[in-house]
Write a protein that binds this DNA or RNA. Structure first.
Length: 203
DNA sequence: ATGTCGATTTGCT
DNA sequence: GCAAATCGACATA
């Protein structure tokens, strides 16, 4: 038996969202939903840095039904409905009561590519399959049903397959769609792998 | 290639 | 009531 590739509970808890958002680039996000195994290499993330980040849903330690899971210890999923129709997948990081999360905005399909294309109703592999936060969830079959799941269990998890992303390959820039956050909208907390076709096109 | 607009739930005022 | 961590359809050029 080879050692498990799955990231451990402690991996998610030992850093904040800004640090882990960068370390998550090159990791592989996997799902096994309705018997279908699918997954892709994470190529774009955004960090939402807890209570002090105006763009974060848990800014000021705001607790609602939706944000409750953000206060859990790192290593859980946070899937919420955006604009009334899109599911956005996040990874809860950091320790309990520090509501950090990392949004996954783009993945390069790797496992179960045909299933991912089918879920997106696309005939063949192309960036539109999974370049964008709502598209990541669609292609992997993630919905609100997958909120607050343990990422060390067998439905949604993340693997380290040894794909190396050097610091110089990481592009840093402002987060997308958070103009309402004032000064915090300018923070360079969007991270992506340079020149990867599965990085979302910011409108 | 660029711009506008609708879909539709959640949470805040 | 209104804006939101978005996307795709459609219009115009």
């Amino acid at each position: 038996m080879s050692k498990s590739l799955k990231l451990s509970r402690s991996w998610y808890q030992r850093d904040d969202a800004v640090a882990l958002a960068q370390k998550l680039l090159g990791k592989v996000l996997m799902t096994r939903i309705n018997g279908q195994l699918t997954g892709g290499i994470i190529v774009e993330t955004e960090a939402y840095q807890g209570a002090t980040d105006k763009a974060c849903h848990a800014y000021g330690n705001r607790r609602t039904t939706r944000t409750e899971v953000m206060f859990a210890p790192g290593g859980l999923s946070y899937v919420y409905l955006c604009y009334g129709m899109h599911h956005l997948f996040n990874i809860i990081t950091n320790i309990q009561d520090t509501p950090d999360a990392v949004l996954v905005r783009g993945i390069a399909p790797l496992v179960g590519i045909e299933t991912m294309c089918e879920r997106r109703k696309l005939p063949k592999l192309q960036p539109r399959v999974s370049a964008g936060p709502a598209l990541v969830s669609q292609s992997l079959g993630l919905t609100r049903d997958h909120n607050a799941l343990d990422l060390t269990a067998n439905t949604v998890w993340i693997e380290d397959r040894g794909i190396e992303v050097k610091p110089r390959q990481i592009r840093k820039g402002p987060r997308v769609g958070v103009d309402y956050a004032g000064e915090h909208a300018k923070l360079p907390w969007r991270f992506s792998i340079k020149d990867n076709p599965y990085v979302s096109k910011a409108k």
